[in-house]
């Protein structure tokens, strides 16, 4: 099987109140304050192993750009990996 891994993050300069709150919680717990804390989304899509990797990547990019990512506020990274079908 081929697994597509998509990491969606807020573009720089966009306020991330969730990240700020997590960062404050770390500080309140006595941990060192991180210079920055940004939250995002992680999405895994699994496809049959006989898929053509190049065509698949192009298709997943279209899915990202049309549905999974709002280009106004978010950017994404995509990677594809071939896995043994039993691996999970």
């Amino acid at each position: 099987m081929i697994r597509a891994r998509i990491r969606v993050t807020l573009k720089s300069g966009i306020l991330d109140p969730q990240g700020q709150t997590v960062s404050h919680a770390m500080e309140n717990m006595g941990f060192r304050a991180a210079e920055s804390c940004r939250m995002g989304k992680y999405i895994e899509l699994d496809y049959p192993g006989d898929s053509d990797p190049q065509a698949l990547e192009a298709e997943v990019r279209r899915v990202c750009e049309r549905l999974l990512v709002n280009p106004n506020t978010e950017s994404y990274e995509l990677s594809l990996e071939r896995l043994q079908d039993t691996a999970r």
Partner: peptide, 16 residues
């Protein structure tokens, strides 16, 4: 906004 019929995006409230 998501449909592109209006510009911009509505994001999570500032104080969550």
């Amino acid at each position: 906004c998501e449909a592109g019929l209006l510009p911009g995006t509505l994001m999570t409230n500032r104080d969550l």
